[in-house]
């Protein structure tokens, strides 16, 4: 999925997949921080967002 989106010119970091067990609250927090940082670095989504006109 991510591969084809990247192929189409959408930044890879806009899609994330992860695997967290229900006992891993700290991992959850780490992953949220990581993703949040990456997406902030990318800025707002412009590629696939629908602009109603």
């Amino acid at each position: 999925m991510g591969n084809l989106l990247e192929h189409m010119g959408v930044e890879k970091d806009r899609i994330h997949f992860s695997w967290i067990s229900s006992a891993e609250a700290t991992k959850f927090v780490d992953v949220v921080k990581e993703i949040s940082d990456k997406v902030r670095a990318l800025g707002p989504n412009t590629k696939l967002k629908k602009i109603y006109s």
Binding site: E6, H7, M8, G9, V10, E11, K47
Partner: peptide
């Protein structure tokens, strides 16, 4: 496919 893969993200975006 390789040709497109080697492009920059902006170029891919424009292509599609």
């Amino acid at each position: 496919v390789n040709e497109i893969e080697a492009m920059s993200q902006e170029a891919k975006s424009t292509l599609f």
